[in-house]
Structures are given as structure tokens and as C-alpha cells.
């Protein structure tokens, strides 16, 4: 559905590299996650695919249309939700939706089935101005506006940034039901924990794709064994663990430390070492890595 070949892009006359030889393929009907921190190049890639920017190098196709030559055809068949909340703050929910429906040459009634489940949640407030809505409601309205013309591909650039957990969960549930309608969804997020909600993901950093796979596949490719270190006094525990010569890397990770070992080192030995250093309650257990652990490992390679 989306094919990206050797796309490259720079800003400031080549001084800032935004994208570097990016290759990707997104299949029809999948939720594909583009995961990386701010400044990784996610928005640039979205803008190239939505024909808002011309790539400097490489080629890309959306729905078999070339992003440079067939930009008009692409603009007819995709839905796009930019990173910022981009609806008219001084228009009401209904006015916004009506406006975008007309802009895309359709009416609310025509594709109401597609947005119905989402729209009913905000319909009670339809005469409220968009600027006065909560983060979660704005997001729902933006999604309705992006879906109003029944696009084949949906581009969602960081849709969940700045939205609370409950709204985020609802949002991902909505995406899952859209997938059932056969809509291909390319979604970007800086939050690693959302990766597992996608069918496939690409990890992106500094304009380069680090890895493309299913979330399970990425976790599976973690090299070596990951250990969790639990104990009181995180800061001193962190210093002590990093001081152990067998440790390759160690980071605080929520309520525990995550550590990997150099070849030959073992968990029990570290536990004994930490206890000897006064961390009597220290416990070292092997654990299964998460997407974020994989990302860190890929970044350090």
C-alpha cells in the first residue's frame, strides 16, 4: 500500500539530515507504527508521503501513486492528521466536520457509517467550539475529520502526544476497529509502549530506520539476556551495578534497573556483588526485554 525506496531529505541546505536512505513497505490493511523520538524524521517522512514535501532523493508510492507525479490522486485518497491539533479552534465541532467534508467533496451523511462510532462520543458537544474541547475530544474530532472522505490510507502523526492514558487507550481501540474496515494506517509515536499495539513497527532515529519487524520479532531479536535489578536506593544501586566489571550496560527502568552483561558474567554473581556492597535486598532476575530495551540496544550499536 505504501512503498518507500531510498528516500533522503535534508534541511538548511544540507546541514541537517532529516531522512537518510529510508526504505519501507506497508501492507494493505495493517497498522504500521513509526516509532522514534522527537527529531527522528517521522514528520518529514509523513509530509513526503502526503505530498506536502518533495523528497530530495528516492521514490515513494502511496496506493500505487507516485508521491511526486500523482500528488493529486494521493490527495484524493488519503486522510492526514498532522502532529499539532489542526482544526479551527473558533469553529464548533459540527462546523469543523462540515467544512472538511465539503473540502473533500463529500458530506457527513455520505460516510457517516465510518465515523459513527467515534462521532457519537463527541456529538453531545457538537455546538461547542473546538478550542474549548479536552485533549481527548479534540483528538476524536481530528480523527473524524481525517476519515470523513473514507480514505484508503490514514496518516496519523503523533496522534496521542499530550493525551491522557484513558483517551489514548480509547484512541487505539478506534484504530483497531478502523483496521477492520480495511483502512491502512501509518501512525507515528514517540512512546515505545504503544509499539505493541501495532501490527508491524519501524524504529527510527536520526533519519535512519534501525529495524522493521513485528513487535514480537523485534523483541525476539534482542541479543543476549536482559536482567532486572531490584533493590532500595535506586541511585546508589545504579552506581554499584555500573561499577561491576561484568556489566555491559545498566539503566534505570521504572522501578527496576535493566542490565546486560559482558560475555561470561552471570546474574547470581552480580547479586552477590551488590549484596557485598551493602545492598542486602538486591535481587537480580533474568527478564524478557521490551521494545524500549531493544531500541536502546539498537541505538548503542
Amino acid at each position: 500500500m505504501i512503498r518507500i525506496e531510498h528516500i533522503g531529505m535534508t534541511y538548511d541546505k544540507g546541514r541537517v539530515v532529516a531522512l537518510q536512505d529510508v526504505n519501507l513497505e506497508v501492507n494493505k490493511g495493517e497498522i504500521f507504527g513509526l516509532i522514534g523520538p522527537d527529531g527522528a524524521g517521522k514528520t518529514t517522512l509523513f509530509r513526503i508521503l502526503t505530498t506536502l514535501l518533495l523528497p530530495e532523493k528516492g521514490q515513494a508510492w502511496v496506493n500505487n501513486y507516485d508521491v511526486v507525479k500523482d500528488y493529486k490522486a494521493i490527495r484524493n485518497s488519503v486522510g492526514y492528521m498532522p502532529g499539532k491539533f489542526s482544526l479551527y479552534q473558533d469553529l464548533t465541532i459540527e462546523e469543523n466536520l462540515n467544512f472538511f467534508a465539503t473540502v473533500f467533496g463529500t458530506t457527513i451523511a455520505e460516510n457517516y457509517d465510518l465515523i459513527k462510532d467515534i462521532y457519537v462520543q463527541i456529538e453531545p458537544f457538537k455546538n461547542r467550539r473546538a478550542g474549548k474541547l479536552s485533549g481527548g475530544m479534540k483528538q476524536k474530532l481530528a480523527l473524524c475529520c481525517a476519515l470523513i472522505h473514507k480514505p484508503d490510507v490514514l496518516f496519523l502523526d503523533e496522534p496521542t502526544t499530550g493525551v491522557d492514558v484513558v483517551s489514548r487507550k480509547e484512541f487505539w481501540d478506534m484504530l483497531k476497529s478502523l483496521r477492520k474496515e480495511g483502512i491502512t494506517i501509518l501512525v507515528s509515536t514517540p512512546y515505545m509502549d504503544e509499539a505493541t499495539l501495532c501490527d508491524r513497527i519501524a524504529l527510527i532515529q536520526k533519519g535512519s530506520i534501525l529495524s522493521v519487524d513485528t513487535p514480537e520479532g523485534i523483541v525476539h531479536s534482542f541479543s543476549g539476556q536482559l536482567y532486572a535489578v531490584h533493590g532500595q536506593g535506586t541511585y546508589h544501586l545504579l552506581q554499584a551495578t555500573r561499577g561491576y566489571e561484568g556489566v555491559a550496560s545498566c539503566f534505570a527502568f521504572g522501578d527496576a534497573l535493566h542490565a546486560t552483561f559482558k560475555p561470561g558474567a552471570q546474574g547470581p554473581a552480580l547479586q552477590a556483588y551488590l549484596q557485598s556492597k551493602g545492598h542486602s535486598d538486591a535481587r537480580v532476575d533474568p527478564i524478557k526485554p521490551g521494545i524500549e530495551d531493544c531500541f536502546i540496544q539498537l541505538l548503542n550499536q
Binding site: 541511585y235 531500541f295 536502546i296
Partner: peptide
Amino acid sequence: GGVDPVTRRQFWDLIYEAADKGVTVFVTTH
């Protein structure tokens, strides 16, 4: 929000260090 995981870890290293020195850290986040 929005920083890469390695930087985020380093950031929390700084927070832990400050807390260890007696600074109270009050974090609001969702």
C-alpha cells in the same frame, strides 16, 4: 516527553542523583 530512550535514561540518572543529594523532585505527567 518525546526524547529518545537513551537520553531519557540519562535524564533520570540526573534526577536520581539530585534526589540523592536531598532535592525533592515533584513530577507531574500523564
